[in-house]
Simulated scan of single mutants.
Amino acid sequence: MRKMTVLLLAFTIVLGLHSSPSASASATFKDIDRSPMKFYIEELAKNNVISGYADGTFRPKENLTRAQFAKMLALAMELPLDSKAAAQFTDLADWSRPYVGALVKAEITYGKSKTLFGANTLITRQEMAVMFVRAMGLEEFVVLLEYDASFADIQKVSSWAQPHVAFLKDIGFIEGNGKYYFPQDPTTREAFAKLTYRFKMEELKYYELALNRIILELVEEAIDVELIDGETIEVTYDDGEIYEYEISYFMQGLYMTFQYESLAYLDGFMWQQMTSAEKNEIIMFAISYWDSEYSEYILKRPAEQAYNLLFSRLDGYYVNSINNKDNLLRTLLWSAVDTYTIDYIHQEQQ
């Protein structure tokens, strides 16, 4: 696990919160004195990150539609605009299609259905949480983690958004009112401004917190993660050793190793219920892992030949119901060694 990694995106947000900003970036908005987000709004304005309306207002309590939010987030991530990627949605205005398409292409949003984006519906707080996690490039890890506690209304969060909301709470990125998150409520301009501030002004802080939350749970021996810069981390282990890694390399290996070891939770009963496509995906993943620099094994056969051998072996082994209790990873590994499909790296080097 120490030589390990799906890219995490640390990005800087630069955006205007209105399609036609005209208030001076250094101005104090006349309608934010009662907003709990006043500090964040003013700091972002000072740094030319947001702007308000021509009448000198910011309108902090104004709700956002999904289309408006899509434009803001696409601009925040500086994504290339792409109208074609949103061509399937029939409810988009011409002004919003390029921004929605940018998010679709980046796999940050998928719409309400195959043909509807829900452009004019208000974006909810749980939808906002999901999109921010995806924008960070963290979703693949977030759904793997265990969460002991979260907001008191976590059960009101849709199942597809619960990991995202719990994760952002764990790293202090969102806090609701301290007890409740109100996941189904619409997102406001001031709420979005607060999160934008945290990305822009406290980017490295939350990036480091996110890496600690992920790595300390998935790497048993790790006890601390320090962000050296946007590309490098220093990991401290329980034996006192400290190693420096390139973040993308470490995280890709961590993800692949976790997925590989998860095959131990499958057995012959499950194998028998799988489709050919599902079996193919599992075997090809194992082969690609063995052929990667993260594995302690080395692949000795061409991938296609290895696949045919292993598929035949597993199908033959699990056809006997006595063997169905055996876990899939052990059976797959034994079959690969027995057919000289893989070998230990150190043996290859001798």
Rank of each mutant, 00 (worst) to 15 (best):
K3L: 05
T5I: 11
V6G: 05
T12A: 10
I13R: 01
L15M: 14
H18L: 08
S19H: 14
S19N: 02
P21E: 10
A23R: 13
T28L: 01
P36N: 10
F39D: 07
K46Q: 10
Y53W: 11
K61M: 00
L64H: 10
L64R: 10
L73Q: 12
M77W: 09
L79S: 02
K84F: 03
A86H: 06
T90Y: 09
D91H: 03
P98N: 01
T109G: 05
T109R: 04
G111E: 08
K114H: 07
T115M: 01
A119P: 08
L122S: 06
E127L: 05
M128A: 12
F132R: 02
A135V: 04
A135W: 10
L144A: 07
Y147F: 11
Y147W: 03
D148Y: 04
D148S: 04
D148C: 00
D153S: 07
D153N: 06
D153M: 10
S158Q: 10
S159M: 14
D170I: 01
D170P: 05
D170C: 08
D170W: 04
I171Y: 01
I174A: 11
Y181T: 06
Y181N: 03
F182W: 06
F182C: 01
P186C: 03
T187D: 02
T187Y: 03
R189T: 04
L195C: 08
T196S: 12
K200L: 10
K205A: 07
Y206R: 00
R213C: 06
L216W: 03
L216E: 12
A222D: 15
T232L: 14
T232N: 15
T232Q: 14
D238H: 11
G240P: 11
I242G: 05
E244A: 06
Y245Q: 08
Y245P: 13
F250R: 06
F250S: 04
Y255K: 13
Y255N: 15
F258K: 15
Q259F: 06
Q259P: 01
Y260C: 04
L263D: 07
D267S: 09
M270T: 14
M270E: 10
Q272V: 11
M274P: 01
T275H: 08
E281Y: 10
M284C: 00
F285K: 05
A286Y: 02
Y289E: 09
Y294Q: 09
E296P: 00
Y297Q: 07
I298L: 09
L299K: 04
R301C: 02
P302T: 04
P302A: 07
A306W: 09
D315T: 03
G316I: 11
G316F: 08
Y318F: 14
V319H: 04
I322G: 01
N323L: 11
K325D: 15
K325A: 15
K325Q: 15
K325G: 14
T331E: 14
L332N: 07
W334P: 00
S335L: 01
D338I: 08
D338H: 06
Y340H: 14
H346A: 10
E348C: 09
Q349D: 09
Q349A: 13
Q349N: 12
